[in-house]
Simulated assay, not measured.
Amino acid sequence: MGKKVGLLDLDLCGPSIALMTGLNETTIYRNEKGWIPLTTLTTPPFSPLAVMSIAFLLKNSSSAVIWRGPKKNAMIKQFLEDVDWGDLDYLLIDTPPGTSDEHISVAEALKHRADDVSAILVTTPQIIAVNDVRREITFCHKAGIPIVGIIENMSGYVCPHCSDCTNIFSSGGGQSLAELANVTFLGNIPIDPDLCESAEKGINYLNQFENSEASKRLSDIAGKLITQTT
């Protein structure tokens, strides 16, 4: 959509963004401004994605990050202050589920940019997942972080042959939560084996399966996000 986007993987103990973007086992370098994010390979109309993850700093994909809070906080601060992102329209920060060290550190580190910071919450339809995201809403309110909206992932399985949708994990949890919290429901994304395989192989799903139902909904959600944040 013509936007310059960076993606920061802050799931320090379980980084997966490197694999999902096809950048695993890639060397990262520094310049005088800090680490240089790696860039995904893509084709028009999609723009390259600048990516930074702790996975780029580990010896191999099996290396474990076993850190307590203070070391996590220091790493997060370094990622936010010591990466040469260049001129971006958006910096997406992917955090692990819950309200742990990563979330607190990000909220504190970005206080000086409070007007530019907002949250996108992702849930699956099940009540257990929705309850977890409800706690994240409470966290955002206490931290003063506005919520752009809620996305429901794994929202039914669309049959590739008859286009019938089967709600394997229930349905509507994300939309109900959005209504309860008085925030925007950005949309739902169905289960698609091709999407899962693309993530595991680091393939651009939107490029390869642009006519799929999940691709259409992802593009629709991206359009809503741009509209709400510009």
Rank of each mutant, 00 (worst) to 15 (best):
F79T: 05
L80I: 13
H103Q: 13
D89A: 08
G98A: 04
L121E: 02
V117C: 11
S118A: 14
H112C: 11
I120M: 11
G98E: 05
L91M: 11
V122Y: 03
D115K: 15
I93T: 07
D94E: 04
A74Q: 14
D84K: 01
I93V: 15
G86R: 01
L91I: 12
P96K: 01
T124K: 00
T124L: 01
I104H: 00
T124H: 02
E108H: 03
I93F: 11
E81K: 13
L110I: 12
D87H: 03
D87W: 00
S100A: 14
H112S: 15
L121P: 07
A74E: 15
L92T: 13
D115S: 15
T124E: 11
S100C: 09
T99Y: 00
D84S: 13
T123D: 10
L92C: 14
S100R: 01
T123N: 09
D94H: 05
D82P: 07
D87I: 02
R113M: 13
D84Y: 00
P97I: 03
T99V: 08
E81C: 08
D94Y: 03
T95G: 08
L88G: 11
H103E: 06
G98D: 07
T99Q: 02
S100P: 06
L80W: 04
T99N: 05
T99P: 10
A109M: 11
D101K: 01
K111M: 13
G86Q: 04
L110S: 13
I93Q: 04
R113Q: 14
